[in-house]
Design a protein around this nucleic acid. Structure first.
Lengths: 334, 334
DNA sequence: GTGCTCGATGTGACCGGTAACAGTGACCGG
DNA sequence: CCGGTCACTGTTACCGGTCACATCGAGCAC
């Protein structure tokens, strides 16, 4: 930063104005892309700015305009892949829109931590809040927010006009349809934990698609998201061998299945097809590379930002996942 | 926020001052814990503040004092446990010190993203930077930072006066000594990837401690941090069976070992002891619960904040990890 | 009593932008 | 030729704090 040796401060718009021979207001107009500035003037100002390495003072801007240009993220600081990538993409999208992000963390176990976090965001005068904390208590706290600010909750299924989420149901139907179209009929489903809304939606999608094709359905296997469980379930399934495909409700469990099938000498996809859900970054590197349903977290983050900034029509509250066909699925052996 | 229906704005110090019958400067003094304020006056001001639900305007403060009270985090937005918890703890520590955090992400693959992120932090006038991005290019960029600001790099071993890290070497010696003290002599070490500084330090610690006890050392097994590799290595080790303990360089690999040993019918810790490194949150729930070396990421975050805020003497650049003895280690069978 | 120090408080400028409004000159229709 | 409109630019106040300095009365040493 070029620091004026006289004043000992970084250059302000008035410094720029003086050198460019204009008023400071004109500099401000250039800064804000005001339409009626003569091109030659604009250029002169821009040149001086570059020369001085001028940077607008964010605090002064915020004070004068009472706009902080900051988006708050309310986060449970989860170490999971999904939340982490959502946060990254929110950050990127915010920056692309000329906003900053500020993060307030909550510890769901600590009493008062939610209201503390909200206080913190309020103190920063955030113009919007993106919530990446799927705790029920967070939603309750948001319902009676003590100050007005647009917000959006991610990762949660809901219809209070503040939720933005992947259409888990549609994704599950996609995955199931893919297997059915390949010719599979005996398909098992490995669900996530019962109390997870996503898990339930995926299971419903599976069941409905199966019914639509008049395929016989077996009872879903209640899983817990972990690869270990997938491995265990795979071993159990190998005992019965009355299926040609398995749709796992997430990639980790699918990984466990692959492992179990490999251990059991069952070829995937030759003898059994496996589909996952999520498309975690590792999924493409599994052996065999996993056919799965992609949740585009980056897109979710972008949309969340558009939404809270009021650029998104309130209709598009769900995002359709995409089926990624890789090498873990094939037509069933005859 | 109580909004004055007349001005349509949240209350300012002048509003508080008027109601408390003092000058705005006195209010400011109360706000900043100035010593020479009469207690009765202070209390009166505080009462009015509470009544109006007054909140200081951060932008105005920053503008007037040219202090942003913001710490920047330069992050690679990793989805790993370590970085994520470091960020959480930095956030908490900053807040405890009356600072805000602002996060700038870099994508190591995108050209210019490092300088963009630094620009962003500069624009926010951060007073310090905590770096949670162990990329070599980041360190280079920091070395010739275009503006002056204290910073600290975490996760990296180095001695340029800006690094703060766990003493991996000491931790590895602790783990190894624990096994030796239990009576083990035939101990294998499973390392992390060769190009990781941490992996190397842990290996050195292992070797030096073994030598100090005149225990025969076998060549370390070069791993890759993954549980899968641990499993694989465990299976291989079961072929030779010339050991009574394994020290894995992280918990994931230790998990794989446990898995392999369980599969192979080898009792842990009855027949073989296993030690990990990191103490990831799951480690205590492994079967058997894993003896491991704890890296207290929360402590690291706190220290990082103290350091960049100048409250830490420059001596304490390393943090000693702690050995957590759980159920995966025992004296060797005779 | 006088002068001095010091605690407690007030006054006014200032930080670096933006907002509101005013001015200026060119162009245009009548 | 004149008033009006419009593009372009300047002037001044203001946002809500902090800072430097002034003020004022009490306590105290001499």
């Amino acid at each position: 930063m070029t620091i004026d040796p006289v004043s000992g401060r970084p250059p302000s718009i008035r410094d720029v104005a003086r050198l460019a021979g204009v008023s400071h207001q004109t500099v401000s107009r250039v800064l804000n892309n005001h339409p009626s500035i003569r091109d030659t003037t604009r250029q002169r100002v821009l040149d001086v700015m570059a020369e001085l390495q001028y940077r607008p003072n964010r605090a002064a801007r915020a004070l004068a305009s009472s706009r902080s240009r900051t988006i708050g993220i309310l986060s449970a600081m989860s170490t999971d892949y999904g939340p982490a990538s959502i946060m990254a993409s929110v950050e990127a999208a915010a920056r692309a829109n000329g906003y900053w992000v500020s993060i307030a963390n909550i510890d769901p176990n600590v009493e008062g931590s939610i209201s503390d976090a909200l206080d913190q965001l309020r103190a920063q005068a955030v113009e919007a809040i993106v919530v990446v904390a799927p705790q029920k208590r967070v939603f309750e706290a948001l319902a009676n927010l003590p100050f007005e600010v647009p917000y959006v909750t991610l990762q949660a299924v809901g219809d209070d006009g503040h939720a933005l989420f992947f259409d888990q149901y549609a994704g599950a139907r996609l995955a199931t349809r893919h297997l059915l179209e390949l010719g599979h009929r005996a398909i098992y489903h490995l669900t996530g934990p019962q109390n997870w809304i996503e898990a339930d939606a995926r299971m419903q999608g599976f069941l409905d698609e199966m019914n639509a094709w008049d395929a016989p359905t077996t009872a879903p296997i209640l899983g817990d998201w972990t690869a270990d469980f997938g491995y265990f379930a795979g071993q159990e399934l190998l005992r019965v061998r009355d299926f040609t495909a398995v749709f796992a409700s997430n990639d980790q469990m699918a990984l466990g299945l692959l492992h179990a099938f490999r251990d059991g000498g069952v070829d995937v996809p030759g003898e059994v097809s496996v589909v996952g859900f999520d498309d975690i970054p590792e999924a493409a590197h599994f052996w065999p590379p996993l056919t799965t349903v992609r949740q585009d977290f980056a897109e979710l983050g972008r949309r969340a930002v558009s939404f809270v900034l009021g650029e998104l029509d309130t209709e598009a509250h769900t995002i359709d996942p995409r089926l990624l066909v890789r090498a873990s699925t094939a037509a069933p052996a005859r």
